[in-house]
C-alpha cells in the first residue's frame, strides 16, 4: 500500500539521509536531492566527534552504506527551484528542469557556519594567525602539521567563544549550542598535539548541554590544563612579528586583560543555510525570528513545518548536534509516515 507514495527529501546531509533511510524502511519511495556533488554535508568536514572522540568518518561510512543498502535515489548537484501543490500532491521542479511528483516533502537543508569575516574586529582573513574552528577541524582532519603562519609551533592558543552567536551585532541573538563543546574538544586536541602549549578559552557562559559534555569540560580542566577565562574577546590586533594580541575583560576579577597569542581560533556559530533561505521563498515556509524554519508545534510536532505535507529535519530547524539530528531525523520519518497514513485513510 505504501509503495506508491513518494517523498522528496531536500538535502542529503546526515538528517536528510537518516530520515530517508527510515522512510525507505517503512516502504516509501524516497528521492534525495542534494545541491553538492557529494552527500553527507557537513559531516565530511569533521575529524573527531564529541563527546566520545569517535572519528567522523564512521558516521560518513554508515551514511554511504545505508544509501547503498536501501538503494536511495539521489540527485546530486541539484537544487529545488519551484514547489507547487496540486491537490494533495507536490510537484517539485529541480534546477535540471526535472519535475518530481511527491506526496510529502522533507526539508533537510541544514545550516551554514557564521562568516567570521563579519566580525572584523577579530581579524579573520586579515591576520594570518586567526582561524575559525572549521579551519582548525579541517587541519586536524587532513592530518597536516599545524603551525602558525610563520611556520612555528603554536605555544599560546586562544579560543574565542560566541563568534556570531548571542551577538546582536552579528544579527544573531541565539546561542548556537555546540560551539562551547567544540571549543573544549578542539582545545583538548591541540593541547594533546602540543603538550607544552597553553590553551585559553574566552567565554561568556559555558553551555555544556549534555552529561558527557560536562565531563569533557571537567577533563579539559583537569587533564589538559585548559584555562577558561570568563570574558568576551573584544578585539584582536597583530604585533610586528605576526603574533596576536587579544583584549578581553577577566570579568571574574573585574579587570581588563591583554594577552599575546600565537594562534586564535574563532568558534563560529551556526546560521540558517543557503538552502534553508531558499526554501523560505520556494516553498513559502515560515521562519522564526532567528531565521531558522519554524515548527508548526514546538512541543508536539517539532518536525512539522508551517505548510501541511512539508516536514523539517535537522539543523534547518535550529542548531543541533549529530546525536540530536539523528533523533530528529527518525522522528521526522515517523511524522511523515503518520501524515501519509492519515492521508490515505481520507482517500
Amino acid at each position: 500500500m505504501n509503495t506508491q507514495k513518494t517523498i522528496v527529501t531536500i538535502g542529503a546531509g546526515i538528517a536528510g539521509i537518516e530520515s530517508s533511510v527510515a522512510l525507505s524502511k517503512l516502504g516509501y519511495r524516497v528521492i534525495l536531492v542534494e545541491k553538492d556533488k557529494t552527500i553527507g554535508g557537513k559531516i565530511n568536514n569533521y575529524y573527531h566527534l564529541f563527546p566520545n572522540n569517535r572519528p567522523a568518518v564512521d558516521i560518513k561510512n554508515y551514511m554511504d552504506e545505508q544509501c547503498r543498502i536501501h538503494d536511495l535515489t539521489i540527485y546530486k548537484n541539484t537544487e529545488i527551484n519551484k514547489v507547487q501543490k496540486k491537490g494533495e500532491r507536490f510537484s517539485v521542479t529541480t534546477s535540471n528542469d526535472d519535475i518530481l511528483k511527491a506526496d510529502a516533502l522533507l526539508v533537510a537543508t541544514g545550516f551554514e557556519y557564521f562568516n567570521g569575516m563579519q566580525k572584523e574586529e577579530y581579524g579573520y582573513k586579515i591576520y594570518d594567525n586567526v582561524i575559525t574552528s572549521i579551519d582548525l577541524e579541517e587541519k586536524l582532519r587532513s592530518g597536516k602539521q599545524i603551525t602558525t603562519a610563520q611556520g612555528k609551533e603554536p605555544k599560546r592558543i586562544a579560543f574565542v567563544h560566541c563568534v556570531g552567536s548571542r551577538d546582536e551585532k552579528s544579527g544573531n541573538h541565539y546561542c548556537s549550542r555546540l560551539c562551547c563543546i567544540t571549543g573544549v574538544k578542539q582545545a583538548m586536541e591541540l593541547n594533546s598535539r602540543f603538550p607544552n602549549s597553553l590553551v585559553y578559552c574566552f567565554y561568556i557562559d559555558l553551555r555544556m548541554y549534555s552529561m558527557e559534555y560536562e565531563s569533557l569540560y571537567r577533563s579539559a580542566q583537569e587533564k589538559f590544563g585548559i584555562q577558561f577565562i570568563r570574558g568576551k574577546v573584544s578585539e584582536v590586533s597583530e604585533n610586528k612579528e605576526g603574533t596576536l594580541q587579544i583584549k578581553a575583560e577577566d570579568t571574574l576579577s573585574g579587570r581588563p586583560l591583554r594577552m599575546e597569542m600565537d594562534l586564535v581560533v574563532l568558534l563560529v556559530g551556526m546560521v540558517p543555510g543557503q538552502g534553508t533561505e531558499k526554501m523560505k521563498s520556494v516553498a513559502a515556509l515560515e521562519s522564526n525570528s532567528h531565521g531558522f524554519l519554524e515548527s508548526n508545534d514546538w512541543q508536539l510536532h517539532k518536525n512539522s513545518s508551517s505548510q501541511p505535507g512539508i516536514f523539517l529535519t535537522g539543523a534547518c530547524n535550529g542548531p543541533m548536534s549529530i546525536d540530536e539530528t539523528m533523533e530528529h531525523a527518525r522522528s521526522a520519518a515517523f511524522e511523515v509516515h503518520t501524515y501519509l497514513q492519515n492521508h490515505s485513510k481520507h482517500e
Partner: peptide
C-alpha cells in the same frame, strides 16, 4: 579603526 583592523593594517 581599532575595531576595523583591515583599515589599520
Amino acid at each position: 579603526t581599532h575595531l576595523t583592523p583591515a583599515i589599520k593594517k
